[in-house]
Design a binder for these strands. Structure first.
Lengths: 122, 122
DNA sequence: CTATCAATCAACCAATTGGATGAATGATAT
DNA sequence: ATATCATTCATCCAATTGGTTGATTGATAG
């Protein structure tokens, strides 16, 4: 069956991903990482008017969503963005658009057919 | 300045959009609407093992996020998906990828230059 | 007028979230 | 041994969320 994977397969991962990106602070963190490459937690925290702990928690959420990878080198934790992970969201959006397009297409076919019938009847 | 709109412009809208799509029930509702076109609240509710009220609340969230439009005709509320709204998310993803690509490019240039210097020194 | 139907509103509950603070861990530097 | 640094863990708090049930609105049908 087409589009089956949308319904429940990957659903939990997708929810985590979308929830993780739905917070402005976390989106800024992702932007920083895309701009500057891997950063330490404290480096990231300097960009916010917020306790280090809160930033740490945000990073942990990004980590759980797989949007970020932690390479613990020495005492420092290097946080690295995982761009590939975004594809999962992309795919869901594409699927939704496909479903939508399919319906419009069917609708269009129906109208064309009816118009043909109309001309038959005239 | 490039990419300015990412940081805070549209940020609230984007957060609402992403939060709205981060719930599996709401994603299924969107899929139903893409598949079948505009539906009434009760029609949507039949697909879930959940009170009508809960479904109603989910729809209201989708509405607040602009992902869905309500056309109140007679006593019935026709709920219609707004596919255009997804573009806002698309754009943020594209922006993030551009930022990422720009950094990689700069990094690549740097390496090429250093390699050139190395051959100069040999 | 009354029963029914579509949908919302209001209140409640448990779980999660985004923030704070203070203590703890673990490694390096003096 | 002690001080410092990077980070997390443990609590706490107010706000939000996803769900429930019961009452309400507003229109239609008998």
């Amino acid at each position: 069956m087409l589009f089956t994977h949308m319904v429940e397969l990957e659903s939990h991962d997708l929810s985590e991903l979308l929830k993780a990106t739905s917070d402005p602070t976390r989106r800024i963190i992702l932007t920083l990482l895309a701009q500057h490459g891997p950063l330490r937690v404290t480096q990231i925290a300097t960009h916010f008017d917020m306790s280090l702990n809160s930033v740490s928690k945000h990073i942990k959420m990004l980590e759980r969503a797989g949007l970020v990878l932690r390479r613990t080198e020495w005492r420092e934790h290097l946080i690295e963005i995982q761009m590939d992970r975004l594809k999962l969201v992309d795919r869901w959006f594409e699927d939704l658009r496909s479903i939508w397009a399919l319906r419009l297409e069917a609708l269009d076919n129906l109208i064309t057919k009816e118009t043909a019938n109309d001309t038959d009847n005239n």
